[in-house]
Amino acid sequence: MAKVIIIGGGPAGCEAAHQLANQGIDVELVEKNNETGGNLNNWYQLFPDRKSAKDLNDILKQNLNHPKIQLHLGMEPRKIEKNKEGKFLVPLSDGSLLEGDSLLISTGFKIFDARRKEEYGYGIYENVITSVELENMFYNHSIQMVNGNTPKRIGIIHCVGSRDEKVCNYHCSKLCCITGVKQAIELRELLPDTEIFCFYMDMRMFGPGYEEMYREAQEKYNIKFVRGRLSEAAENLNKQLQIKVEDTLVGKPLRMTLDMMILLVGMESSEGSRQMADTLGLNLAPNGFIKSQDPHYRNNNTNVEGVFVAGCGSAPMNLTDTLADARSAAMSIMEYIKRI
């Protein structure tokens, strides 16, 4: 019976495993952490429907309870080889060896290290946090400054580590805009009297229901949107943040004091993806993500026969697209297995 080895047990890996197992394929799912779910584990609610991330994660986990799926948690692949018969040999960190007919790379993304935008003061000023840390605050239903006070004015900064030549990331991480809108709404629900600003370059509301959510944020939740990119922030004696932005629609520099600043950190190619590319000889796109053979028709294929890619390993994408991409990858793998 054909066997597929999946590297990476995030949403893409889980969904692909489930789909392949349902088609009667043996699946070996390798995940470096001790639980599956990947970055989804860090999220509290999902956009645009505000579904609990945990609920979705649980469904994905339950689906792995399948006789055809073998889980390898806390494992990392070592140097992968493709033998003469076209089989993939994957030695794991515990010394075991997996053998499969096809390989699916679902190594996901890495969160941009906000300290690289030093002028924003992450890691230097105490009330600058990332969108990931904010999710954790939502989880605990408590939004507080470090000194325990409730923030009276919060700024959400878009495009941190995305679309920025200064950190060598030209690409758009795609989902920070809608994350910002979602988080602004969640903040409003917890903090009815706080002023909330989003500082954006472009609002890219690409998914179904996103634009509606943006409208709702303005109309119902009174979130204020300023078109301008943060240039620098300074900290005053009260540990507040003094930011410099140009309000480009007014055409004047804007000085504002914030109690808390949230950085919408972008997505970068994960170390796992780079390692896989390195060991398998996969082509990378200029942005560092794994290059698909064709963006339309064979988007799950890579330049190596039998190696497929799904989810954020190939480009930043939201959960909806990630799961769809995983299913599409499963189909492509089925097709490949039938052929060999």
Partner: peptide, 10 residues
């Protein structure tokens, strides 16, 4: 793209 970053810190 007119983000205004230049002007903000000028």
């Amino acid at each position: 793209i007119g983000c205004g970053g230049c002007t903000a810190g000028c």
